[in-house]
């Protein structure tokens, strides 16, 4: 800031003095343009600052809107809202527990599937694969992030769910049915399908951040470990992954934040039934999908405000999750080169 501030005003007095000198001799034009410029500079800075402020304003507006419109439900149910599993729009009794449960289970399932895969893929791309393969492979993974959520959902309904129903779920039921997690009728549509599609969607996020923080690990670290006689894997494990772990955890949490709030794809395959079931084959419901499905149907005010309260909870949770993730990623990508220099 100090450097920026000291340099910026410098050209201004300089230029106005120059034009004043030349203006007294002949033409008033430069002097006038300099005055206009200084005026314009203030305006420019003002407008630019306003657009920066708009980011803060938007977040505050979102929070304010959510609180105002969930007021009715907040007052009526209080904290009990999140511990009751009764969702009865006709009787006007609302509890969000099944949705909280569905959101948590589907997101955790997605993490369980996505984290090993994306970290392994990031390791492969940054440390192992031949250099000609690096760019196309990372491009393909970035492409995965560009596919709209609704297209994931479409694919999951018509391709993934039938696949799960006919092959995967019977297989899991046969060999892992005793755990209780994989039992009951195989619909294809349900918690498992939601977890898998979420996993596919968060892989590019976790993987790209893992790649970023692994690239930020100084090359000397790798060379030092290799010089001690380590194999490549030992070098990656002790020299790279250990140094990058803060950032990797940040990436995982960022992926979690995305999974918690993901709406369309999940809504299309989770089955949308407000139940708490042990089996992953059973249909469920998430916070985001209940908003998507029932918002426009909610006719009375209490019903609408209960749905908006779920939105408020989702907002707060993702805010916290993202803040933590951001702090971790910043700490590891910014701290790393500085430490290497010191």
């Amino acid at each position: 800031m100090a450097a920026q501030g000291s340099i910026t005003p410098n050209p201004m007095p300089g230029s106005s003095r120059l034009s004043a000198v030349s203006g007294s001799q002949a033409k008033p034009l430069p002097a006038r343009s300099s005055f206009a410029s200084r005026f314009a500079d203030k305006w420019f800075r003002g407008i630019i600052t306003l657009s920066a402020l708009s980011v803060l304003a938007i977040v505050i507006l979102i929070a304010w809107q959510l609180v105002v419109h969930s007021d009715l439900s907040l007052k009526q149910f209080g904290l009990k809202f999140f511990f009751s599993s009764n969702w009865d729009p006709v009787a006007g009794d609302f509890g969000a527990l099944p949705f909280v449960f569905g959101t948590l289970v589907s997101s955790l399932l997605a993490l369980v599937i996505a984290v090993p895969l994306s970290v392994a893929a990031a390791v492969f791309i940054t440390e192992m694969c031949p250099s000609w393969l690096k760019t196309p492979l990372s491009f393909l993974m970035e492409l995965l992030a560009a596919i709209p959520s609704v297209i994931y959902g479409l694919w999951a309904i018509f391709i993934l769910a039938p696949l799960l129903r006919t092959y995967v779920e019977p297989f899991l039921a046969k060999y892992l049915g005793w755990t209780g997690l994989f039992s009951g009728p195989a619909y294809g549509i349900g918690m498992l399908a939601a977890g898998i599609i979420l996993a596919i969607m968060i892989v590019p996020i976790i993987s790209s951040i893992t790649r970023e923080v692994m690239t930020a690990v100084p090359q000397q670290q790798r060379e030092a470990v290799l010089a001690l006689g380590a194999t490549r894997w030992e070098m990656i494990r002790t020299g790279v992954l250990r140094n990058a772990r803060t950032g990797i955890i940040g990436g995982v949490i960022l992926g979690l934040g995305r999974a918690l709030g993901e709406t369309m794809a999940v809504t299309m395959v989770i089955g949308n039934r407000p139940e708490i079931a042990k089996s992953l084959f059973a249909p469920g419901y998430t916070m985001a999908s209940v908003i998507a499905n029932e918002f426009s149907e909610a006719t009375d005010n209490l019903y609408l405000s209960a749905i908006i309260e779920i939105g408020l909870a989702l907002f707060i949770v993702t805010l916290i999750v993202n803040a933590i993730a951001q702090a971790l990623v910043w700490a590891s990508t910014r701290g790393m080169p500085a430490r290497a220099q010191a």
């Binding site: 980011v55 979102i62 959510l66 934040g257 993901e262 985001a288 805010l319 993202n322 803040a323």
Partner: peptide, 20 residues
């Protein structure tokens, strides 16, 4: 920081706010 956080706010929540 706020901008990174806003980036993570679920789109459906933005939808509710704009609805309001």
């Amino acid at each position: 920081f706020t901008s990174d956080v806003l980036n993570g706010v679920p789109s459906i929540v933005v939808g509710i706010a704009v609805y309001g």
